[in-house]
């Protein structure tokens, strides 16, 4: 049972600036800052550990600057880590720290085994390519060198994410924000990754569009059984999508638990404040 995890994260840490001894002890919720008083170094993520199980949806909630986006960006190798270990079952049965892999192997993990959806579609999509081309890129990264197969898979994914197929050969630059986000989701799941990272995916959208994107993500989760880490400052998103939630403040986990427990019986003062701000 305890060995069933898909992703195991231990002591993940990111410091911007000098990583002097004691910097981790001088920051965090206890000091109400993530800036070291001696060196001015910023501790974005401070010793975070958790396990993610197959098919599980984990929420990461916290205000801006709590380190939640940095956390997923490190997992997707967008950012270098300062310290910490991540083990991932599909890679050597989880016996190797992902951050010690060669860059080429990291790219393999990124392209074959993970999907990422960013808050800003420009970070996840290349607007100089068509939407079909963007999906093709992810498939080509996984060595699918067959245009026919790429077209079929692309159309299939766009249908799944409810983007009109007629717009497959158009640049997403001309799409609405909600539709850009759908193309990004289609690209992220193109290779059926076991892990999907979602970073504030609905933040820039209108409420009605938000609802549709959330419905889509929930439907995909149910259909594909993919594990997800959902980063959001919006407890509504967390409630709708996740089984389990971690609350971050100043780079540290202040509380974690079942999502219904976090929402109905928050233990930490900060979480109580967040929940009471919800309504």
């Amino acid at each position: 049972m305890n060995n069933n995890w898909l992703l195991r994260v231990r002591n993940l840490t990111k410091i911007y600036g000098e990583a002097t001894p004691g910097v981790l002890e001088r920051t965090g919720p206890k000091f109400d800052t993530n800036i070291c008083s001696r060196t001015g170094a910023v501790v974005a993520v401070n010793g975070i550990s958790f396990d993610l199980y197959p098919g599980e949806v984990l929420g990461v909630v916290g205000e801006s600057g709590s380190g939640k986006s940095t956390l997923v960006q490190m997992l997707y190798f967008d950012q270098e880590v300062t310290a910490g270990e991540v083990n991932f079952k599909p890679i050597e049965d989880g016996n190797v720290n992902l951050f010690e892999l060669s860059n080429q192997k990291k790219r393999y993990v990124r392209n074959h085994l993970m999907g990422m959806v960013y808050q800003n579609p420009r970070d996840g999509l290349n607007f100089r390519f068509t939407s079909g081309g963007n999906i093709a890129e992810k498939l080509l990264m996984a060595n699918v060198f067959n245009v026919g197969k790429i077209r079929i898979r692309g159309a299939d994914l766009l249908t799944k994410t409810e983007v009109p197929i007629q717009r497959m050969d158009e640049s997403p630059a001309r799409f609405s924000g909600g539709m850009q986000q759908r193309v990004q989701i289609a690209k992220a799941i193109a290779n059926n990754p076991p892990l999907l990272l979602l970073d504030e995916v609905t933040s820039g959208l209108d409420v009605s569009v938000q609802a549709k994107v959330l419905d889509l993500i929930r439907g995909l989760q149910q259909d594909l059984g993919v594990s997800m880490i959902v980063v959001s400052h919006d407890l509504g998103v967390i409630r709708m999508l996740t089984d389990r939630t971690m609350v971050l403040k100043h780079g540290q986990i202040v509380e974690q638990g079942l999502t219904d427990q976090i929402l109905q019986d928050p233990q930490h003062g900060y979480t109580q404040l967040l929940v009471s701000s919800l309504l």
């Binding site: 290349n126 390519f129 081309g133 890129e137 080509l140 060198f145 790429i150």
Partner: peptide, 8 residues
């Protein structure tokens, strides 16, 4: 992959 996308 990107150069392949231009061919696609």
């Amino acid at each position: 992959a990107k150069i392949w996308v231009t061919l696609y």
